[in-house]
Design a protein around this nucleic acid. Sequence first.
DNA 1: TTAGGTGCAAATGATTTGCAATAAT
DNA 2: ATTATTGCAAATCATTTGCACCTAA
Lengths: 142, 142
Amino acid sequence: MKNDIQQTLSDHNLKATDARKFLLETISIEKRPVDAQSLIEIMQKKLGVDRVTIFRILNTLTAHGILRRLEFQEGKARYEISSDDHHHLICENCGAIEDIPDTMVPKIEKEIARDHDFLIKRHTLEFFGLCKNCQKRVKFKD
Amino acid sequence: MKNDIQQTLSDHNLKATDARKFLLETISIEKRPVDAQSLIEIMQKKLGVDRVTIFRILNTLTAHGILRRLEFQEGKARYEISSDDHHHLICENCGAIEDIPDTMVPKIEKEIARDHDFLIKRHTLEFFGLCKNCQKRVKFKD
DNA sequence: TTAGGTGCAAATGATTTGCAATAAT
DNA sequence: ATTATTGCAAATCATTTGCACCTAA
């Protein structure tokens, strides 16, 4: 009996190496998208995996659509398990990230396809601002 | 009589140096968001400006809201003059970038502010896919 | 067994930092 | 005259590449 992760990998004809399994487990557990550096720190301790391997795994899994690569204007990428389309509310003060479902964009995309004759394959929609808690604490809101 | 660019800079208490004026002119002329490297190549020839200066100008002008920093998942930033909110249709084949007006997101933002108690300060919405021309030419559309 | 993965060293590309020299107001 | 801005050299950070060795299927 294969578990979810093993199954996912074998579905994509990817070898189920320790590094890949551990990386997928770690990302699954994290509630917010993680950057390569976090994974490197965790996996270097636990498994002795080289940083290069982690970048390679992230690329492979992203290419296979198992992971989704995100950019929050930090000069580095973050990754999350691919799941239903959703967006992120990113607090610029504490870094909290909340997921919100994607309800409007599919509609917009149809209009765009029609009006601009553009074939949309993917999109990114992120909101930056202050979460509930930080609104109380931060003085300069604008 | 100050021109637009000089006026903008002085409004922000920024000195109107040749490098800044030239950079703003160049970005104004470009129809699509430019990356630092393009500016470096242009400005190094024309004015002999150092690359570091260009990065610093981009940071300063972005901090003052004169420019807007964009990330199209290329591992580098692009910049455009801050203007009305709009989004981009980015062709993954030829790199063409088309602007489209932002009509829906303001509505969405109100709902989010209400439902999630999140203070939105800015957002990014980009669509990736194939432009009209490339749809005809590219074989593997998915 | 064997194609696909990984480690290590070194390279690349984008962007930043420190400090002394320089120019805009 | 002052303070902001620039140039130059060197550093940092994220990510990639080449190649020999290793291992999951």
